[in-house]
Amino acid sequence: MPPYLAHEDTGATGDTGTGVLPLVLVHGHPFDRGMWAPQLAAFSAGRRVVAPDLRGYGASPVPDDTSTPLSVFADDLAALLDHLDIDRCVLGGVSMGGQIVMECCARFPGRIAGIVLADTFPAAETESGRLARAAMADRLLREGMAGYAEEVLYKMVAPYADPEVAAHVRRMMTGTDPRGAAAALRGRAVRPDYRPLLPRITVPALVVVGADDEYTPVAEARAMHEALPASTLEIIEGAAHLPNLERPEPFNAALAQWLLRTGL
Rank of each mutant, 00 (worst) to 15 (best):
D53E: 00
V20L: 15
Y148T: 00
M156I: 14
D65M: 07
P30I: 13
L255Q: 03
E150K: 09
G19N: 06
P109R: 11
P122F: 03
Y154N: 15
M35T: 02
A181V: 11
A161T: 11
E246R: 11
E226C: 07
L5Q: 05
P52Y: 05
A161V: 13
P61C: 01
R179H: 15
L70P: 00
I112V: 00
L242M: 15
E127M: 09
L5S: 03
K155L: 13
G114E: 13
M224W: 14
P229Y: 12
A254L: 05
A146P: 06
E214I: 06
R142T: 00
E143M: 04
A189S: 03
L77N: 00
F108Q: 02
A118L: 15
V165C: 12
R179E: 06
R55D: 01
V203H: 07
L5E: 02
G97V: 12
A59V: 03
V90H: 02
S67H: 09
P22Q: 02
S60Y: 09
A37Y: 14
A106S: 14
G19D: 09
L5C: 04
D119N: 06
G110W: 07
Y160W: 15
L40V: 03
F31C: 04
D162I: 09
E246C: 10
G110R: 07
S67T: 12
E151W: 05
G46C: 07
S67P: 03
R130Y: 10
F73S: 02
L80F: 01
Y148N: 01
G210M: 02
V152I: 15
R186H: 07
H168C: 11
T66K: 10
V207H: 08
V116S: 01
G19K: 08
G28R: 13
D87G: 08
L25S: 09
M173K: 09
T16E: 12
Y4K: 03
A239Y: 04
G238T: 04
V26A: 01
V152C: 12
V94C: 15
L255V: 02
P163F: 14
A240W: 10
G144H: 01
G210Y: 01
A135L: 11
E151H: 10
A41N: 06
Y148L: 02
F31G: 00
D85W: 08
A37K: 12
D76K: 12
P250T: 02
T262E: 13
D87N: 08
A182L: 07
D213K: 10
P192W: 15
P196Q: 08
G56L: 06
D15Y: 11
N252L: 04
R200M: 05
A106W: 09
A167L: 08
S95E: 07
E8N: 09
R133K: 15
V165I: 12
P61V: 01
F108C: 01
L77C: 03
M136N: 11
A78T: 00
D213R: 08
R170P: 04
L91A: 00
M224E: 06
V62R: 10
A137D: 02
R133G: 02
S128T: 06
D82K: 09
P163W: 15
A254H: 05
G210K: 01
G114C: 14
A118N: 15
R139M: 14
R130N: 06
R33F: 06
